[in-house]
């Protein structure tokens, strides 16, 4: 998978001594056209990798912000096929690595083989499935490996060293370290175990390490940056989209991405 866009971007950043900013938007929120503009806008503003959330009716790892965005997108009739098609269109305009974050059932319903083959052909680089632990991941992992689609695993503050060893052995692209015990967008401080968990992951893999969940502000970016190769920001971006309304969303999100990226670059 050396030709995967994710791997290349992390190698380039590493050579420059920089860290990656990975913003997340819910695909189809408020509509697919805006999602396309948001992706291109965020890439211009300095996003290194972009996560596209696939809306699901029952997003049990997500807090209220992404729940609401997912519900709104589903009410607009969004589905996984349209999101794969959106990636294919975006690929004509940007080389930024694109990662889909989807619960397992929409992928299962699509058909694992059909999904992996069509997503990778469209230009999807990675896949994060929050309800697919390493024990259940093999079928999707093997299909992804055959097509160069990285199955990016999550590690939590509650993951034991034994679990981390197992997860790291099957990690592709990067490892997503969850910063807290809780759902996305939660406030209330990062886990005290975070540094220890990250140490355990580092000991098991040379892959880049991204921290996500509950990161909303430049101050938090500066706090966590020393521990990670990348930081993921989701709910805070979706909140900007909601607050900005119809026309201002792209500008508002670009501003936030610029701000966060600056916090990440500044020593």
């Amino acid at each position: 998978m050396s030709d995967n866009r994710i791997t290349r971007v992390f190698a380039e950043l590493n050579a420059r001594g920089e860290k990656a900013l990975i913003p997340f938007v819910t695909a189809g929120y408020p509509d697919l056209e805006t999602t396309a503009e948001l992706v291109l806008g965020m890439a211009r503003a300095g996003a290194d990798v972009i996560e596209l959330g696939v809306p699901f009716s029952d997003p049990l790892a997500d807090g209220p912000t992404i729940q609401r965005a997912s519900q709104a997108a589903l009410s607009g009739g969004i589905n996984l096929r349209q999101i794969v098609a959106l990636v294919a269109r975006l690929r004509e305009q940007t080389a930024v690595p694109l990662v889909l974050m989807s619960y397992f059932n929409p992928i299962l319903s699509y058909g694992l083989e059909a999904f992996v083959s069509e997503a990778s052909r469209a230009g999807v680089d990675g896949l994060i499935v929050p309800d697919l632990p390493v024990e259940e991941a093999d079928p999707l992992l093997e299909l992804g490996d055959a097509r160069g689609l990285a199955l990016i695993p999550l590690v939590a503050p509650t993951s034991t060293p034994e679990r981390i060893t197992r997860i790291a052995a099957k990690a592709r692209g990067f490892v997503y370290c969850v910063s807290l015990t809780g759902v996305t967008g939660r406030h209330g401080g990062f886990s005290k175990k975070l540094a220890e968990v990250i140490g355990n992951v580092r000991a098991q893999t040379g892959l880049p390490l991204a921290i996500g969940f509950g990161i909303a502000e430049p101050g938090q970016v500066r706090e966590l940056a020393p521990y990670a190769d990348a930081l993921i920001v989701g709910s805070a971006i979706v909140n900007r989209i909601s607050a900005a309304g119809e026309n201002g969303a792209v500008k508002a999100v670009q501003n936030l991405v610029t701000e966060l990226k600056q916090a990440l670059v500044k020593k």
Partner: peptide, 20 residues
């Protein structure tokens, strides 16, 4: 051992819950 009844069952939850 993996919690399967034939083709059904298993554990499809966030990593945070797996140790629990």
């Amino acid at each position: 051992e993996r919690g399967y009844f034939g083709a059904f069952g298993g554990r499809y939850v966030p990593e945070t819950l797996m140790s629990a």
